[in-house]
Write a protein that binds this DNA or RNA. Structure first.
Lengths: 240, 240
DNA sequence: AAAGTTCGTTCCGTGCACCGGAACACCTCG
DNA sequence: CGAGGTGTTCCGGTGCACGGAACGAACTTT
């Protein structure tokens, strides 16, 4: 039964939105009556809510989701540094962690006139298509990179790296410089620079980045700010 | 069964954390075996995760919670204005909505050396004890204020307003000035100024605030910035 | 206007998944 | 060592989750 309830909730991933009963049932692969029954329970429990004739995710999910430790704890420590980075660059700042082969975004800060990006708090993008992902990947154990490089690489744009050799080279450059770059690999017209965040010896626990319209991309200006934020945060995390 | 699963998840509200099986079962009021079974399912589905011998809320909740429309949509619109407000004040900025008799915080922005506050993204505090809450309450229909004033008022500190007359006066002052204040009513040593955010005619859809250590509270300096942010955001929301 | 289609909701028989006590193995502490 | 606590497994009983059928309402098509 739990599986069925979650299959209903999963209809809303990754795009959110709202659905009517029949569509929700179809997308969840459940008989209409079963879906109707479960939806009623989910609404009662606050995990879904009614919006006219439609259903959308409910406030209780938001409240529970906000308590998830890996989001809450890391975000609290990172926020001042992300704010610094946003202020010194005025560009969209991201903060994310690795989950399997994806980046999961824990925070995203932008101002007015922010460029449209596919990233979203709570959303996922492939490690290999994003600067944050590459920063995480470059400093993770070699087994992960090997495993990812052994299969086909996911693509979000025509510029996404599809050649394993090219990706390996990029990762090695990141290992040397401590910075990872993204060139229209996740979103057309967008460049990005990222640095890993460490909590101690070993793999990075997170990474942060700045995303910029390509024609305004100035690594020389951005790199020090990105490094400073990542180092500052790493130091804070090490001190517990 | 869903009820039981949610009773397990609700153990984590409002404080988060992690628990062992037996404690989780006791707090959820379930027999140990039932809890064990459900926890196994919740872990499999990503709603809980194991942390050694302990269980904590899982990443799937964070991902689903991030898609909740009333959080995601409002926060996206509000963020640039909240950033402006943070930059012009350098103090902790809050953004919240009303749910029944509580404020639910949708965003909280702070820098280094932020003052400790009881607020938290996804957390709740009584309307009557917070500036945001009073801003929301003052511009909601009179039935709500009447209903709240008819019962005992919740208190978070010794300074929280317990006298219905005093609260009614404060609400009327907010209706006149468009600003609501908080004087150690939610947290000792903390003052706060808030303004409502409207999306059209009618009740406010949200409110935003700045929280300051009491000895640094300068309403004359803060009020214009708070007003500007709230007005700017209201305008944006009205334009869709 | 009538017929057909789709929707959300209710009804209800039944099969099996949920339930949870008992048992077990392991660990910790006095 | 024994007592108490923990997490895990086992398994029989039964309550209820399940979902097809039916229904009424709304919408669309002829």
């Amino acid at each position: 039964m739990l599986d069925k309830a979650v299959s209903i909730l999963d209809v809303y991933r990754p795009d959110g939105g709202s659905f009517r009963l029949t569509e929700l049932a179809a997308r969840a692969g459940l008989p209409k009556t079963t879906a109707f029954r479960l939806i009623g329970d989910l609404v009662r429990l606050g995990l879904l809510e009614r919006d006219g004739e439609r259903y959308r995710l409910g406030g209780t999910l938001f409240e529970l989701g906000s308590l998830v430790p890996r989001r809450h704890d890391l975000r609290e420590s990172a926020l001042p540094f992300l704010q610094d980075l946003f202020e010194s660059t005025r560009q969209t700042v991201h903060f994310g962690i690795r989950d399997d082969r994806d980046v999961v975004y824990l925070e995203r800060i932008h101002g007015h006139d922010a460029v449209p990006l596919p990233s979203r708090i709570g959303g996922r993008l492939p490690l290999t298509c994003t600067a944050i992902g590459k920063a995480l990947l470059a400093f993770s154990g070699p087994e992960l990179a090997d495993a990812i490089l052994a299969g086909p690489l996911p693509r979000l744009t025509a510029y996404s790296i599809a050649d394993p050799l090219r990706l390996r080279t990029a990762l090695e450059q990141t290992q040397v410089s401590g910075l990872a770059y993204e060139e229209q690999e996740a979103a057309l017209g967008i460049s990005c620079i990222a640095a890993p965040v460490f909590a101690g010896a070993g793999e990075p626990v997170a990474a942060l980045s700045v995303a910029v319209p390509r024609e305004h991309f100035r690594p020389a200006h951005l790199a020090p700010a990105v490094r400073t934020a990542a180092l500052g945060l790493s130091r804070t995390l090490r001190q517990g």
